[in-house]
Every structure is written in C-alpha cells, then in structure tokens.
Design a protein around this nucleic acid. Structure first.
Lengths: 114, 114
DNA sequence: TATGAATATTCGAGCCTTCGCATATATTAT
DNA sequence: ATAATATATGCGAAGGCTCGAATATTCATA
C-alpha cells in the first residue's frame, strides 16, 4: 500500500483525534444538527466549534446542508459511525485497563471508588 | 459521555493518526514481528520506528513479547484490525473523492490531470 | 566482566494544532 | 439600506508532535 493512502487514512484518524470532534460526530450519529445546536449542546465557543467543523468538513467526515440562515451537519458515511461503535466496544472490552490508563494519563479523572 | 472517555478515544485515534504507525499495525495484522523486522520492512530509522512503537505501546494498541535479545510485537486486539479494515472499505467506497482530496492536500501524489 | 547486537530513551529544532479573540460573510426581516 | 442572527475565517500565542542524532539499556555469549 502506497504511502499516500496511508497518509489519507492517517489524516482521517487525525480528524477524529480530538475529544470535541468525537463529541460532534457522536451527537450527529442520531441525526443531523445545525451548527447552533451543536454549539449549544457542547457549550463551547462558537468560533471553536466552527473550526472543528471545518476540520471535519475538510476531511469530508461530515456534510452540510444550508437551510435559510442555518447550516445543518450530518455524518457523511455510516462507516464512520461503525468505526466509533467499534471503539466503544474496544473501550468496554478493556474497561479495567482503560481506567488505569486514564488514571495514569490524567490524575484528575479517577480519584477513589465511585 | 464524560470528557475523559472522549479524550481516551481521541488518544487512540491520535495513536493511529500517523502513516508509519498505520503501516506498523497493518504489517502486524499478518502476525507478530520483531522490532528489527519492522525496521527492515519499513526501511526507516531504528530510533524512529522504536519511537512509534513506544506510542503504540503507550496506548496499548500493541503488545510485546521478549525473546532473547529481540522484542516481538503484535496487535493487542483484533478490533483494531477491524477498524483499519473499515477504513479500507471507506477508502474504496469514496475512491474518486479520495483521489481528489489527495490531489488537493498534496500535489506530489497525482501525476497527470490539471 | 567485557563485548556486540537489538532495542529503548532522551534531547533539541522545526512544524502543526488548538484556542481565544476579532472580524467577515450570509441570510432574513424591517 | 440597516439591524439581527447564524456561521465562517484570519491571526497570534502556547503547547504538542515528529524527526534525527546521540546515548542508554538489555540480553547472549565468551
């Protein structure tokens, strides 16, 4: 497999390699949402979300549809949803180690039992 | 879903977001290989491959087994292979647009046309 | 213990990404 | 044309990632 194709895949993973963008895709799994709705649900800066949407658009992970003065986004291909679903399965399968990893990587997340 | 879990997923995607690391995982799909064999097959700097292996290890995408003075690597969970297989399907499905994307993103990949 | 082979780690420079802020564009209504 | 709302884009600082070179570590063998 040529390097350029690997870079193409790598770029898609790169687009998914941000918590906010994962949140966006996961919100869109249930159906299309306007930029404004995404901003509201995520509770982040408008410009910030818009930039992340631009990244997802550039890699064509999402498509947008204009309606009036709003722009609605949706996931371009359900394969992407399947990828995220697989990741959820992976996460559940390795839950214990995941929690330990999260603990190591970020002390603020896993204090005591709970 | 809490932010920490999204970051966990994002970190895994981040680990996959590099052409060399994708090449490593794809080589390992067919069975375990030693670090030296990977270096040879990939034709890159030893230190470079070792660093990428360290990233994959840190995110637990690969596991390693020591035998003598060699270290053999293999993919930890076939789910990861499935993810890459899905990406191959995604690529094939959108081949045309992919080529256009590659063209836009990196002029060196597409010879003729424009 | 010393030596060589295999692998890992550290360090610094350059590059890319992310965020916040400001500004620009587009659409609708008045 | 102007105001109001929705969305996008440009810019700069801070932080993170990648590479190559040098160094360190581990193991087998003598």
């Amino acid at each position: 497999m040529p390097e350029s194709l690997r870079r193409f895949k790598a770029d898609i993973f790169q687009a998914l390699a941000h918590p906010t963008r994962i949140a966006i895709i996961e919100l869109l799994e249930e159906g299309e949402l306007s930029a404004g709705e995404l901003i509201e649900k995520l509770g982040m800066e408008q410009a910030n979300i818009s930039q992340h949407l631009a990244v997802l658009r550039a890699k064509q992970l999402v498509v947008n549809r204009k309606a009036g003065n709003q722009v609605f986004y949706s996931v371009r291909d359900p394969i992407i949803n399947k990828v995220l679903a697989l990741m959820r399965r992976y996460f559940q399968k390795h839950l214990k180690e995941t929690l330990e990893l999260l603990d190591e990587m970020d002390g603020s997340t896993v204090p005591s039992g709970r």
